[in-house]
Write a protein that binds this DNA or RNA. Structure first.
Ligand code: ZN
Length: 569
DNA sequence: CGTTTTTGACCCGCGC
DNA sequence: GCGCGGGTCAAAAACG
């Protein structure tokens, strides 16, 4: 019954000993001109665990941790939207906001106030009734402003939050539409609710399920369905066998386990759930988005937390392929596999699969929605084979997603799964970027350089978040314009009104929508991180350890790998 | 003590 | 039906 015994085991990670010094490099890179999408070793992606000492390339900078901390220390006081909101994402935003505010009007007053205050004591002695009065008044005003400030912050947070939620929702919807025949159109929209949705949506998202709202319960099944692919093996304990169809729920108790066998049979019950979903999910699952980038680091920091659950020698190349799964939420179906390119070991290929079922920090959003958008486009674009549509969409996508990078997107039909590949490895000099501003600056090979709209980072700092937002939007539009009708994208711009009906255009629009904001977010993150970096530099987290074993997988030896089935059976 | 990594065993689809 | 190969599971070890 059991799967047979336990495997072998054990591990060994002890080898980590070999640290290299790449860290330094990382820092250097950090400092280098191209801040966004820069290589950065740091960032321990994950949290806890044994330090993953690794250098990571950080596409979408994420130092959420730092951010959080700093924010907290800053005295964020209340603002507890907690969860959803709290996610680093907002944190970052907040940070920005805060910064701006400070630099703006308040600051001066603040400072002056403070100064006065200090001086006050002395002044007091001198006895200035008037001053005192003024002081009081100012204080009052100050507090009022603070108040307001906070309130605004809160609002912003909320808005931001719901925006993201909507965004995700949209993607989901789009996918659903694509998949479903005309028939039952209206379901999804149901939960718009507007306000609260922020909390709900994300979860539901995961479920994708119609009923989603009820979340927990619904989720389970759906979730399992999500896993779709995996259920098969649910072997773990004999339970599963019987499962096929029964046991609706043993409820949630078991709930969240990732499905896999985990002793839960129920999951299959989910199967019943409905073909659509299943089908849809299946498709989703199939769609893959892979990103090729140059990186010394063993993995790319995309803002999510990943747990490695497997490693295998790939057939065609000496480098092993590692499998990771998202651990930000318990049931998150997202997986990714990382592998080094055989010919050029400096190229790291990261393949994402699935959609997150939980809110993400902005840093993660960037990558996540990029991939999800890519996936949807891929799926919606009818089969990849169709060059016309396929290519176009891919190009569009590439441009949308990483406007400034010279990335190229390609869709391969050959693979078992439809796959979109974003290639960030070439750095064509004269790249035809959407933004003419491109600073032609010699960059390190392989780094994408992201020309800021302003022509450099510096100016960007000064800009308030909104400016950034607009700009990014702008750039997005511009890009999109050349391949598709810009008009369509214009609509989505309104944060709220989502017309979307046409499947294709919708998907395109969705892509645009999702992509743009992300870009923004990424920028914001990058900027704020940099800013933070100034004082926080020393901070432990800042760039964390990445010791790195520089060489990728030292595992080379692993004889093991090829084993496949060699053994029993 | 909770997490994450390591790693051999499993599972399963597919081609022959 | 067998075997290959891609993925996944999960015990045990490594970390913090
Ligand atoms: Zn996730």
């Amino acid at each position: 019954m059991d799967k047979g015994h336990l495997g072998g085991g054990g591990g060994g990670g002890g080898l980590l000993a070999l640290d290299a010094s790449p860290r330094q490099l990382g820092f250097l890179n950090l400092l280098s001109p191209a801040p966004f999408l820069r290589n950065m070793e740091a960032d321990d992606g994950g949290g806890g665990g044994r330090g993953r000492r690794s250098i990571e390339v950080d596409f979408f900078s994420d130092e959420k941790k730092n951010m959080k901390k700093s924010r907290a220390s800053a005295g964020a006081d209340a603002d507890d939207q907690k969860d959803q909101a709290s996610a680093a994402g907002l944190a970052i935003k907040k940070e920005d906001l805060t910064i701006n505010l400070l630099s703006g009007n308040n600051t001066r007053r603040d400072r002056s106030m403070v100064v006065d205050d200090d001086g006050a004591s002395r002044a007091d002695e001198d006895s200035n009734g008037r001053n005192t009065g003024e002081l009081a008044a100012m204080q009052a005003e100050l507090s009022r402003m603070n108040d307001e400030n906070q309130r605004l912050r809160g609002m912003l947070t909320q808005v931001n939050n719901s925006y993201h939620a909507l965004q995700m929702h949209l993607v989901t919807l789009m996918q659903q539409r694509t998949q479903m025949p005309p028939a039952q159109p209206q379901q999804p929209p149901t939960h718009e609710e507007g306000k609260n949705e922020s909390a709900i949506v994300p979860r539901q998202f995961l479920g994708l399920g119609p009923s989603g709202a009820s979340a927990e319960v619904a989720e389970e099944p759906s979730n399992s369905s999500t896993e779709v692919g995996s259920p098969r093996r649910s072997s773990s304990n004999g339970n599963e066998d019987p499962e096929r169809g029964d046991n609706p729920d043993g409820p949630s108790t078991a709930g969240w386990l990732p499905g896999r066998g985990m002793t839960q049979q129920q999951q299959l019950g989910a199967a019943a759930k409905g073909h659509d979903q299943q089908a849809q999910e299946a498709t989703m699952r199939k769609a893959r988005v892979s990103v090729r980038a140059r990186s010394e680091a063993p993995i790319i920091a995309d803002g999510c937390q990943w747990r490695k659950y497997g490693q295998k020698m790939a057939k065609g190349n000496p480098c092993p392929r590692a499998y990771y799964r998202c651990t930000m939420a318990t049931g998150c179906p997202v997986r990714k596999q990382v592998q080094r390119c055989a010919e050029d070991r400096t190229i790291l290929i990261t393949t994402y699969e699935g959609t997150h079922n939980h809110p993400l920090p902005p840093a993660a959003m960037a990558m996540a929605s990029t991939t999800s958008a890519a996936a949807s486009m891929l799926l919606s674009g009818s089969m990849p084979s169709a060059d016309g549509a396929g290519l176009m969409s891919s190009n569009f996508l590439a441009r949308t997603v990483l406007p400034c990078s010279s990335s190229m997107a390609t869709i391969s039909a050959s693979a078992p799964f439809p796959t979109v590949t974003l290639d960030l490895t070439h750095a064509p000099p004269g790249a035809p970027n959407a933004m003419p501003l491109n600073v032609a600056r010699p960059h390190a090979p392989g780094q994408f350089h992201v020309p800021m709209p302003g022509g450099g980072m510096a100016p960007a700092f000064a800009m308030p978040p909104q400016m950034l937002y607009n700009q990014s939007k702008f750039s997005g539009l511009q890009m999109s314009s050349d391949s598709v009708d810009a008009g369509q994208f214009a609509q989505p711009r309104q944060p709220m009104g989502l017309p979307g009906q046409l499947s294709d255009s919708v998907s395109a629009a969705a892509a645009a929508i999702t992509a743009d904001p992300n870009f923004t977010v990424a920028l914001a993150a990058a900027i704020s991180s940099i800013m933070a970096g100034q004082h926080a530099a020393g901070n432990s987290n800042a760039n964390n350890n990445n010791t790195t074993k520089n060489n990728v997988t030292t595992t080379s030896n692993n004889t093991t790998s090829n084993n496949t089935n060699s053994e029993t059976q």
